[in-house]
Structures are given as C-alpha cells and as structure tokens.
Design a binder for these strands. Structure first.
Length: 564
RNA sequence: CGGGGUGUAGCGCAGCCCGGCUAGCGCACCUGGUUUGGGACCAGGGGGUCGGGGGUUCGAAUCCCUCCACCCCGACCA
C-alpha cells in the first residue's frame, strides 16, 4: 500500500483527553478516533489490527470445533424477560425509544439458548460450541480509558452445550487452552485468575488478565496462586482464643466511632476488635462481623447470599435492628433477632471488643462462643498485600489488571429459564448444560499496546501488525535513483506477498522516520541516497530498535529470515 | 448518580479572574521560492455560530442563569 494514497492521520501533539498509553498511541498513530463517550471509529490502519486479532480468534475457535454464527444486536426483550436479565442488567442494557419490545444485546446467552431450544433436542446433538465475533452494546455508566471500556465494542463470545457436566468440563478446558493459545499468539503477557461469576450466574469461572496500572480489576497473585480480589483468600491465621477468659463487661466509649479510635483510645489490639456492619440482603437484615479493620468483600457476600440485591443499612435501620447507630453496633444484645454471620477468622475467638448496641458503649471480653450466637461463618474479607498465599505461604502481591477474557461454567441457568432441554439416552428430559466464554477484541489490541510501546510509539508483533514492512524512501522525490530503487523494492515485496506499507510521500526524512516509529511496524526498510550509492539499504527492527545496513541484493533473504 | 475539571480554526493551546479597537499563538492546510537521513526555512494566503440558549450591559470569549458535550475521581460494572 502506498502511503501517499492512504488515510493515516498521525498526530504530533498529544490530546489531554487520553490518559493511558494505549489510548494516546491509538489516537496518535491514526488507528482510531473517538466519536462519542465510549464510542470509537476504527480508521483503516486500526481496523487492520482488529482484523488480525479476529483472524487469530477465529482460527483458535475453529480449532476446538467452534461453529461461527452471526447473531443480531437487536433482540426481542421478551427473551431477556424470561431469564430475568432485563432487571439484572438494569441501565446497562440499551432500550430503544421508538420501538417497544426491542433492546440492544449486551451479550448473547439468551439468543444462543433460544436457538438451542429450537434445534438441539437429543444428547446426540451435542457437544456443540457456537461462537460469534460481533458488536455488543452496553450502556456503561462511565466509559473510560479509550477502547478499554466502551459503550459499543466487538466481542468474541462462545457458548458450549453439553449433555453432561463432564462434557462441560471438557468444553471449558478446551476454551481455557484456546484462550492461552490466542493470547500467546498475540504476544500478550497474561495470567489467569479465579473469578466471581457475578450476575452471569453459574459455577466456576476464570478471567484472563493483563497486569496494568490502567486496569480496573484488582488481583492477588503469588507463585502458584492467582485470584481476582473479589474471590481471593489468604492463609492468614484466625484470631483464636487467649487463656484468660474474663466475663463480658460493658465500658463507655463516648468518642470512639471506629476501630482506629478504639485502638488509639483504649490500647486494644486491632485484631481483638470485631467490626459489625449491617446489610440489607433481599430485604432481610444481616449483621456481619469482621475482624478489626478487615474490609468486607461485597462480592463474596453476594455469592453467599445468592443475590446482588444487597446494600448497607441506613442509620435509622441500624437503630431499629440493633438499638445503636454506626460505631456502637455489635453481636451481643441485639435489639431484634437478626441473622448474624461472621468472618472465618473470628471462629471461636474470645476476649473480643465490639459495640454494645447502645450508643457510646462497647463490650470487652466477648467470647463469641459464650456470649452471642453467630449463625454462620464464611470467608468474607478482602485480602491485603503481603498476606501468605494459601498455596505455599508466599506473600501475595495485589496488582491492578485489565480483564481480557472470561470463561464461565454457566450450568443450566439459561436452559432452565428458557426451557432448552434435550432427551438423554434413557429418554429422559434434561436441561442443556452450558458454558459461556468471552474475549474483548479491542481490549486485546489495547493491552498489546500497553505492553509493547516506548516513548516514540508502538512496537507491533508480527501477529498483530497492520502491515509487516514499512518501506521508507528518503527524499525519493529528489532522486531518480532512490525513487527507482524504492519502486523496484516495493514491486518485489508485493510480488513476494509481504504486507508492505510504502511511505512514498514527498515528506522530509524526519517526518517519515518519526511516523514510522509511531506506527511501529515490525521492520523498516530505509532506502536513501547515502547508502544506496554503495548498493546498500538500511533495515531497522522496531521492537529492538536495532539497525543493519546490508546490500540491497541481500534484503529479501534478510526479511524472509526475520518475518518467516 | 455524587464530586472535580474542560469546551476558543482540522489538531494542540493562550486570552476569561479584572468586560472595551479587527479574537491571538504553534502545528496542519493552500501559493511561490530555498532546503533535504530524525518532526526545515522565507514570503504570501485561506479557515472562527469563542459548545447551545437566555440574561446583565452602551459594549460579553470574558459577568449571571440554564442546558449540552467531553475528561478525571468515586459509585456501578455480564
């Protein structure tokens, strides 16, 4: 492709709008332009990268037996009502204003299940893997970070259908391996974490993550262990018992509202404090007891409660249920009998301090076994950097990460809701057992750039590069010899089927070099009078920024050995 | 949805607080000339509803009201 006839609007100056490297570089290198908040146009060069990503996705999905569909973004709302997800999605789902009964699909479990119900009627019809690479619409409350969180984006979404749970395990493992292949082929460094299934429903799920300060997720990782902070646990020791088990005693704490206050004013060790919070879970109050200043992990609470309809109680609710306001709540002498759950670290603990359910007072010497009734114990806390890993005690690192892909064992949530059943070999009707697997296409592109750039621009891998070779004529419009050599090399490279971008513009050398480094094609072939008079050309490898000056005659062999 | 910020030529910005001649600068663009291996130089030129609406004023990019868009932090997030 001749650059003189191409549309590649590179920018010398940086827009203040773009805050993260991938967003800045996608704008500067002429790959994308923003049309509205969370909505991007892909320009020809950027779309070539998208197509490279898509082709890798397609090859790897086909390799595990996936069948490619193209499902509509416009969906009848009735199907979504049958699975209860109109409510679950809430504002995230786009609804049309001038046509009742249609929504824009944020994902496609419902539609896949709908078609499966029509045609997958026997255990002999499975296993099946159906996938598509298609545009999703999500009305994000706050789009951000360029294409990383958009209101419209391309997703590779796949769905497995099996007649047995063992079959689901097989399909899940196939996707796990396919995803590893995909990200390795793209040249992205990633890790996999155990994750929460969120509102998707289902059992096991894992996320494919890229460590990045631009990420919105937080993960705890150590050798042999990695988990989303939403589900991560650690081997930190329980509070336990001390020998001196004194009788429970009330004491005045007029100026202590927080655990920190108790620690400061009364010298109580932080881990001997039990913090109480009240949540309204499905309209039912739960008192939740946590150690010291441990943070309640709401995602874990949602998983335990089996609902995401929960919220912290309001002040007047606190008084109604416990008898006290914030800062004086505890598990002993609750005004009303409400459900009490506690973090595992508090199991069997004694000599604890907690609120007395009377404003301005706390109890000390609480023995959780003796003085109050805890209904259930769960892992409810959010892990903290440095805590020992449950695998081998190594300290956990807590890092920010971008979610690139997510695989779920859905189970029968959607097949149950939509009545997608099959007959097994005994002639018995069963719901189809499903899995769901997604990769954000733009995120793959952005994550690659996050990991592969320098101050001058992008450093594309061969797999994702929009073109492989950047042929640069240095002042070729002033030299017939240079121009002739460029034209000859361009013709030859085209004949050899290389993907070559030929910068034949009448621009100065500096502009061409800087544009080339910004765009970041893997190899630059630089033809100028300086070297050409000795029969040489220069090649520059963008990833390493190494240069070689070689005889023109050797160019093709050198390129073949590099790009092979 | 709460908090903060921004909106002036295609892009990046100044001017606004403290109202006042024809609204500026850099880049880009057009014409002519000189240059030519890391974002050249000279000369000339085109391009503006100062985000929209309303108000105050002799006079508004500038002050007030209101709406909108975009960015950032938080909440939320399959």
């Amino acid at each position: 492709m001749r650059q003189s006839a191409y549309f590649l609007p590179t920018l010398k100056e940086q827009s203040a709008e773009a805050q993260i490297p991938s967003h800045q570089l996608m704008l500067r290198a002429g790959l994308v332009r923003q049309l509205a908040s969370g909505v991007f146009s892909f320009l020809p060069m950027g779309y070539r990268v998208i197509k490279k990503v898509i082709e890798i996705l397609r090859e790897e999905m086909d390799a595990i037996g996936g069948l490619e569909f193209l499902l509509p973004a416009l969906n009848p709302i009735e199907i979504w009502e049958q699975t209860g997800r109109v409510e679950a999605m809430g504002d995230v789902m786009f609804h049309l204003k001038n046509r009742d009964g249609l929504v824009l699909a944020p994902t496609h479990e419902e539609i896949i299940t709908y078609h499966a119900r029509q045609h997958v009627k026997s255990y002999r019809d499975m296993p099946m893997i159906w996938y598509q690479i298609q545009t999703k619409f999500r009305n994000e409350a706050r789009p951000k970070s360029g294409v990383l969180r958009g209101r419209q984006f391309i997703m590779k979404d796949a769905y497995s259908m099996d007649s047995s749970w063992e079959g689901l395990d097989v399909a899940y493992d196939k996707h796990y391996q396919a995803y590893c292949n995909i990200f390795e082929r793209c040249g992205i460094k990633f890790f996999v974490v155990g994750a929460s299934s969120g509102a998707m429903g289902g059992r096991q799920s894992q996320e494919f993550m890229v460590e990045s300060n631009s990420g919105e997720d937080t993960c705890a990782i150590a050798e042999g262990y990695s988990a989303n902070i939403e589900v991560a646990s650690s081997a930190i020791l329980p509070v336990g018992r001390i020998d001196e088990n004194l009788p429970i005693e009330e004491f005045a704490t007029p100026n202590a509202k927080t655990i920190d206050d108790l620690v400061e004013q009364f010298g109580i060790p932080e881990h001997r404090c039990a913090k109480s919070v009240v949540y309204i879970v499905n309209d039912e109050p739960w008192l939740i007891l946590m150690r010291g200043n441990d943070e309640l992990n709401e995602t874990k609470l949602q998983a335990i409660a089996g609902t995401n309809l929960l919220r912290p109680a309001l002040s007047d609710e606190l008084v109604e249920f416990t008898g006290a306001d914030h800062g004086s709540i505890g598990p002993v002498n609750l005004k009303k009998k409400i459900k009490v759950v506690a973090d595992n670290l508090l199991k069997g603990a004694n000599s604890m301090v907690s609120g007395a359910n009377k404003d301005g007072f706390h109890f000390k010497n609480i023995d959780l076994d003796r003085d109050c009734k805890i209904d259930e114990f769960y892992d409810l806390r959010t892990v903290i950097e440095g805590e020992p890993s449950v695998v081998n005690g190594e300290p956990l690192r807590v890092v920010k990460a971008i979610e690139l892909g997510h695989i779920f064992k859905l189970g029968t949530k959607y097949s149950d809701a939509l009545g997608a059943t099959f007959l097994d070999s005994d002639g018995k009707e069963n719901p189809i057992i499903m899995g769901s697997y997604g990769i954000g296409v733009e995120r793959v592109m952005a994550c690659f750039i996050e990991q592969n750039h320098d101050e001058k621009g992008i450093k594309w891998s061969k797999a994702l590069a929009p073109y492989h070779i950047h042929l640069i004529g240095v002042n070729q419009h002033k030299s017939d010899e240079v121009n002739a050599a460029c034209e000859e090399v361009y013709a030859k490279l085209s004949e050899l089927k290389y993907e070559v971008l030929y910068d034949d513009r009448a621009e100065t050398a500096g502009i061409k070099f800087n544009d080339a480094d910004l765009l970041g094609l893997p190899v630059q072939v630089i033809i100028g009078g300086k070297n050409l008079k000795d029969g040489n050309v220069e090649i520059k490898f963008r990833a390493s920024d190494e240069r070689e000056i070689i005889p023109l005659a050797n160019l093709y062999a050198r390129l073949e050995s590099f790009l092979k």
